[in-house]
Design a protein around this nucleic acid. Structure first.
Length: 270
DNA sequence: ATCGCCTCCTGCGCGC
DNA sequence: TGCGCGCAGGAGGCGA
C-alpha cells in the first residue's frame, strides 16, 4: 500500500487514460476488501472517461453518469499494459481494457477495493467524512489546533486519522514528526501552536518531496510502469531502529502506537 | 462522539 | 535448504 505519494504517482501515470473509452472490465478474482460487484462490466463498459482524479488515497474514474472508485489498500498496484500484451501476474484481480491500453489491478494482500457508484463519489460513505488534503490550503495549523484541541489520542494516531487530514500513512507520520521535532506519543491536545505549525509544515514538505521523487517504496510497491520509487533511501527515522540519528548522537527508537511501528529520536523530538 | 483494538490477506526476511 | 515466526505502506468496524 502505497502511501499518498505513490497513489499520486500512479494517478499521474494513468492520466493517459483520460478521455479513453472503457471497452470491458474483467474480474479475475473478485475477492478484495469488499467483493467486486459481478455486474461491474455491465455498468461501466462502453463508457468514456471524462476525468481521473484522486481524493485521499482513492483514485476515481469519472464516467459522467458512473464513477469507478479504486483504493490500492496496502499492496495494490495498477499496471499499464498494451492491448496486445496478455501475460498475467499472480494476484491480478481485475483487467480494465480501454480503447488504447489496458489497466491491470494487482493486489496480493487484498486490502484494496474496486467500487462503483452513480452518485457524487465525494459523497460516497467512504469519502464523505474525510478531512482536508494535506497539500491544500485548508490544512493549516489553526485548523489542526481546532480539530485536536479536545483529543486525548496521541499525535501520531491523530495525523494518521483520515478524519483529521488524509493521506498521512505510517511512514510519513513518523517522518513528519521527526522533522517537526515532536515525539509521536505526545497527546494531541498538548501540542503548542508553534508545534502544530511546524507539524503542518513538515507534513506538507514530506509529502511534497516524496511526490516530486516519485513516491517511496518498500516491498510491495511498484509504480504503474513497474519501476521502483526511490524515496526509501531518504527516510530519516522510518525503518531505522537502532541506527544513528542523522541530527544528533543518539539512536533511533522504535515503539508501537496503535498497533503500528513508530520511529523517532528521543533527543531531537520533544 | 471518541478511541483503542481487531481484522482482512500474502509475502518476505530472519533465526534456528 | 527448509520451516516457523513476526512483521509489513490501510483503514473500516466494533465494543468499551
Amino acid at each position: 500500500m502505497p502511501e499518498l505519494p505513490e497513489v499520486e504517482t500512479t494517478l499521474r501515470a494513468i492520466q493517459s487514460f483520460d478521455q479513453d473509452t472503457l471497452d470491458s472490465v474483467t474480474i479475475h478474482n473478485p475477492s478484495l476488501r469488499w467483493l467486486v460487484d459481478p455486474e461491474i462490466h455491465q455498468k461501466l463498459a462502453g463508457k468514456k472517461v471524462t476525468q481521473i482524479f484522486r481524493r485521499a488515497k482513492y483514485i476515481i474514474f469519472d464516467f459522467a453518469d458512473y464513477q469507478l472508485i479504486i483504493h490500492l489498500g496496502m499492496s495494490g498496484t495498477l499496471r499499464i499494459m498494451g492491448k496486445n500484451e496478455n501475460y498475467f501476474k499472480k494476484h491480478d484481480h481485475a483487467e480494465l481494457v480501454f480503447n488504447k491500453n489496458k489497466l491491470i489491478y494487482n493486489d496480493p494482500r487484498r486490502f484494496g477495493s474496486i467500487l462503483w457508484t452513480t452518485d457524487n463519489p465525494l459523497e460516497h460513505r467512504l469519502l464523505k467524512n474525510l478531512g482536508p488534503e494535506p497539500l491544500e490550503d485548508g490544512f493549516h495549523a489553526e485548523y489542526l489546533r481546532t480539530r485536536l484541541r479536545a483529543k486525548s489520542q496521541c499525535i501520531k494516531s491523530a495525523i494518521m486519522d483520515g478524519h483529521n487530514v488524509v493521506g498521512v500513512g505510517n511512514i510519513y507520520a513518523s517522518e513528519a514528526l521527526f522533522y517537526a521535532g515532536i515525539k509521536p506519543q505526545r497527546k494531541s491536545s498538548k501540542l503548542t501552536k508553534k508545534e502544530l505549525k511546524a507539524l503542518v509544515t513538515s507534513i506538507k514538505d514530506v509529502i511534497n518531496k516524496a511526490i516530486v521523487k516519485g513516491g517511496s517504496t518498500m516491498n510491495d510497491f511498484f509504480d504503474v510502469n513497474g519501476e521502483n520509487g526511490y524515496f526509501q533511501n531518504e527516510h530519516k527515522v522510518y525503518g531505522r531502529k537502532g541506527k544513528d540519528c542523522y541530527q544528533c548522537d543518539s539512536l533511533v527508537l522504535q515503539i508501537t502506537i496503535g498497533q503500528r511501528s513508530s520511529f523517532f529520536c528521543n533527543q531531537c523530538q520533544k
